[in-house]
């Protein structure tokens, strides 16, 4: 079990944010110790990581809530939630494809610059365009 400060540092989230996730029920009611301090389980940490990943993908907190319910009981999920999850899956696939192209493009440019000690073709290319 982990205390709120540990989770905050580990996942780079403020303690206010962690408490807010619980308040709006993205997180279940967090267990408390005898002193009333929150004790996060591995399962809670997994949910928080999921929220962070989904936020990075620009999902709203409302959408994340629905996805979390879907994550909890995928078989029983309503058709509209399944549909939303499917759409989000397609968005992610598109995003991965875009990122892969960008990664390959940057990899190519990095390889070009390190492949030649005297010149950087990226800069040379820009110079040539300017002339």
């Amino acid at each position: 079990m982990y205390q709120i400060g540990q989770i905050s540092r580990r996942l780079s989230l403020s303690t206010d944010t962690l408490r807010y996730y619980e308040k709006i029920k993205l997180l279940p009611a967090i267990a408390r110790n005898a002193s009333g301090l929150r004790q996060y389980s591995d399962s809670d940490v997994s949910i928080i990581k999921f929220i962070k990943r989904a936020q990075k993908m620009k999902f709203s907190l409302d959408e994340i809530g629905q996805l979390l319910n879907f994550r909890k009981s995928p078989i029983q999920a309503q058709p509209d939630v399944r549909k939303m999850a499917h759409e989000k899956l397609q968005d992610i696939s598109t995003h991965i494809q875009d990122l892969t192209v960008l990664k390959n493009e940057l990899q190519l440019l990095v390889n070009l610059c390190t492949g030649d000690k005297d010149h950087c073709p990226i800069l040379d290319g820009f110079e040539e365009e300017r002339d």
């Binding site: 192209v101 493009e105 190519l108 070009l112 990226i122 290319g125």
Partner: peptide, 18 residues
């Protein structure tokens, strides 16, 4: 084909080095 002028094409081909 110059990579700088046709980088999209080079990436599409899968070129990572010249």
């Amino acid at each position: 084909v110059n990579v700088i002028n046709h980088i999209d094409y080079a990436v599409q081909l899968g070129v990572l080095r010249t």
